[in-house]
């Protein structure tokens, strides 16, 4: 696979200072009134409502799934979120609530979050999740292999998991916080897309550094350039650390300025988040009622 190596190492290097300055500059845009209302509704429709805790119970997953379908029970005009994201063991529970609602069901798989397991375990994990009713699979790449330069192993794993997914969409988690450099983020993005990823996702949310604007900017540039080269469009999902409406709107501005309208849809961009949804709902309520909303009026999970 020297082709793969030459492809990845032939990518132009990332201008660290430039990308951080660009992301920071785009983060200063002010979005108000009707534009803000549209941004909030779009952001809600892009949320992958996530619970990935050891303490997840069927009851919590059912409640979260119900919330995904109707995030604000007091306001029927509030849209549903894009998907619910859970551990494979919780997939059947979530599936029973989400059937025929239009809300997708994503499951993490492949020994999430570390990815340190043999390939057949990862594939069994994936097949179980799909069999349980998940129509989206969030896999983690083997960062250890990637950082050691064993791109072929990472590539083959993604191809194998993609095959195990069948019709389910495959999101590939790069865990950018563990990749070390922006150049690695760009390489891992291309590696995942070349191997067949439908989405590339920043993080598991389980390491201290999760989604950031610069990393997402690099990934957006990668999907843009990948489509220009191959004609295939790939989605992007920042996950972890996005908690406020302000953050979410910054990401929407970033999409609009980097890849344009084609990605401004839940089919091509997602937020992996849990507490973000409540902040979006509070801001939405503020816009409709005219006074500030409080967290006591929204469910915790």
């Amino acid at each position: 696979m020297s082709d793969l190596r030459s492809l990845l190492h032939g990518l132009p290097g990332v201008d660290k200072v430039g990308v951080e300055a660009r992301a920071a500059a785009l983060g200063t845009r002010s979005v108000k009134t009707s534009a803000k209302a549209q941004a909030i509704d779009l952001a809600i429709r892009m949320v992958d409502l996530t619970t990935l805790e050891g303490a997840d119970t069927p009851g919590k997953v059912r409640a979260l799934s119900a919330k995904a379908v109707r995030p604000d029970p007091a306001d029927p005009t509030c849209p549903s979120v894009a998907a619910v994201c859970v551990y494979p063991a919780m997939v059947p529970v979530a599936a029973s609530v989400l059937r025929d609602t239009g809300v997708h069901l994503a499951s993490v798989a492949t020994a999430f979050p570390s990815g340190q397991a043999p390939l057949d375990v990862k594939l069994a994990d994936t097949r179980d999740a799909v069999a349980g009713g998940a129509d989206e699979i969030d896999m983690v790449i083997s960062r250890g292999a990637f950082l050691a330069g064993d791109y072929t192993k990472v590539f083959d794993e993604i191809v194998a998991v993609k095959e195990a997914c069948g019709d389910a969409h495959l999101k590939v988690i790069l865990e950018t916080g563990e990749l070390g450099t922006y150049d690695n983020v760009r390489r891992a993005s291309w590696l995942a897309m070349t191997a067949g990823a439908d989405f590339i996702k920043t993080s598991t949310g389980k390491v201290p550094v999760a989604a950031t604007l610069p990393v997402t900017l690099i990934m957006l540039e990668a999907v843009r350039d990948f489509r220009a080269r191959t004609g295939r469009q790939v989605g992007v999902k920042p996950a972890g650390g996005i908690r406020t409406t302000k953050d979410a709107v910054k990401y929407l501005v970033l999409i609009n300025e980097t890849v344009g309208d084609d990605w401004l849809s839940p089919d091509w961009f997602r937020f992996g988040a849990s507490s973000l949804l409540n902040d979006l709902l509070m801001q939405r309520t503020k816009l409709t009622t005219g006074h500030y909303a409080g967290p006591d009026y929204f469910t915790l999970d």
Partner: peptide, 9 residues
């Protein structure tokens, strides 16, 4: 007035 109507006050 913003404090008076604030849900979290």
């Amino acid at each position: 007035p913003w404090l008076a109507s604030h849900d979290d006050v």
